[in-house]
Design a protein around this nucleic acid. Structure first.
Lengths: 264, 264
DNA sequence: CCATCTTTGTGCACGCGTTCACAAAGACAT
DNA sequence: ATGTCTTTGTGAACGCGTGCACAAAGATGG
């Protein structure tokens, strides 16, 4: 959910076998590894030496069989009758996720959200380093945010090249997102985390993940409505034949939630 | 899957058939409806009267067959040989998602991120109204953020009751998230959007969706590493017995959200 | 060394989601 | 009215993900 399956990431555009060998880990598993890692890190800090699949699954909020199968893709790292070695597993998962190396990232668009992300502790905590903050607005560039100067987007290409940035975070207004994305990709970025409410088009080989508050809220609203509807009687949602036309034709009384964000 | 599928939301805990009748819309479809809605709204603003599944699918970044099947769950709203009526579809999807009514939400935890969300335009734009901003820190309460006063969490229960809030957004530090969640649920909230990096335990009937920047980045890092690894040879990672500690030691701020089920 | 007990690792079946491919439906021209 | 052309709506096949249930593996005690 949240971010539901939230990947806009054409899995297999032209028939290339992606999970070819044993090295291939299912996407669903990859998405859960960070969850396990977090739970394991907490155990590690409490100096817990080993943990069973049952305990760890409970801490991560998943089914224990699923967890065991997930780990089986990484290898046989458990000991039957005992469980998993916490430290060892922390290392293995970190390595598998690529967190044993340093990932410089750039954040483009230092508005409210970019500001918040720059200050987010989770960045530095695990292998991710903010290489630069970028913005196109001269009124913002030069400011110091989270100890870093905000630099102008003109410097993007240079920074990406010199710092070997491969991950970019887009927190611009929706209208600027595609353009920023194109420039990032052209400069060499191959992974993008997009917070702008826009569908990004990228060439093959570039991964895009999106985080969209508005979508998450709408999904919750759907379920809320369903819950409320279940309490009432059947309430067959069949439109009484007229309102459809009414909506199409006259947009009067329908409390038009008229304009959404302009640049969809 | 980002926001990978990002729902922590036990689909079918006790065998209750969820998609029982025609009214049941698959989760995957629900997650895409907001995407279609956004694309349709953009078309609507450009006064485009109709759109084909092919065009709309391209705008939303999905397969056209998938889009048609998604719409088929809502009913037969298209016209063969022509396409879909944009305005009509906007209304139907809005209604299905429950956006024709007003959803008051509370945001708990007005730090950097809560601040950013309060200012986020996407909130007010589609049926969502910020009923209150809450924080436990007396140094923050009283401040005005996005035109609203930050109120103390002591008032949570009263506000949720009086304003009929059913959706809560948690942007607290991880240590406080579960406690805030419990209070929200006890007060009557039945949908939660969680930005804190914590697994929330909630009773049946409460929906939780999570947005986790750290997880998204780690998933991207995995794919980045895989891309880089494909170029290089195999690089077998034998553990030198120690490095786990090196990784773990690094940072402590991941404050142990200590109490899930303590070692069930 | 053997028996017992715990916990992993996985074979298997099932259901959901995706995609293809095509028949049915309607628009439009003649 | 009839034929052609476009586009929808959906049947069917396939693949992925999930969860059950159990055999294999190892620890532990006598």
């Amino acid at each position: 959910m949240a971010t539901g399956r939230s990947t806009q990431h054409n899995p297999n555009p032209a028939g290339g076998t992606r999970r070819s060998r044993g090295r291939g880990i299912p996407d669903a598993t990859v998405a859960r590894l960070p969850l396990y890692l977090r739970a394991l890190t907490a155990l590690s800090e409490r100096s817990v030496p080993t943990v069973s699949s049952e305990e760890l699954a409970a801490a991560a909020g998943v089914n224990s069989a699923k967890l065991r199968k997930d780990f089986s893709y990484l290898g046989s790292y458990g000991t039957r009758g005992v469980g998993y070695d916490v430290e060892y597993l922390v290392y293995q998962i970190s390595r598998e996720l690529g967190l044993t190396q340093d990932w410089p990232v750039v954040i483009v668009g230092i508005g409210n959200l970019g500001h918040a992300l720059a200050n987010y502790g989770g960045f530095a905590s695990r292998g991710f380093r903010v290489a630069a903050l970028l913005d196109a607005d001269p009124a913002i560039t030069g400011n110091v945010v989270a100890g870093l100067p905000v630099r102008h987007t003109d410097e993007m290409e240079e920074i990406v090249r010199d710092e070997r940035v491969s991950i970019g975070v887009i927190t611009t207004p929706p209208g600027a997102a595609q353009q920023v994305c194109d420039r990032l990709v052209a400069a060499g970025v191959t992974s993008i985390l997009n917070f702008a409410p826009t569908v990004l088009n990228v060439p093959d080989g570039v991964d895009v993940r999106k985080v969209d508050l508005s979508i998450e809220l709408q999904i919750l609203a759907f379920h809320e409505q369903r819950k409320a509807g279940d309490d009432l009687a059947d309430e067959d949602g069949e439109v009484p034949s007229a309102p459809a036309a009414a909506v199409v034709s006259g947009r009067g009384p329908e409390q038009g939630h008229g304009y959404e964000e302009a640049a969809g």
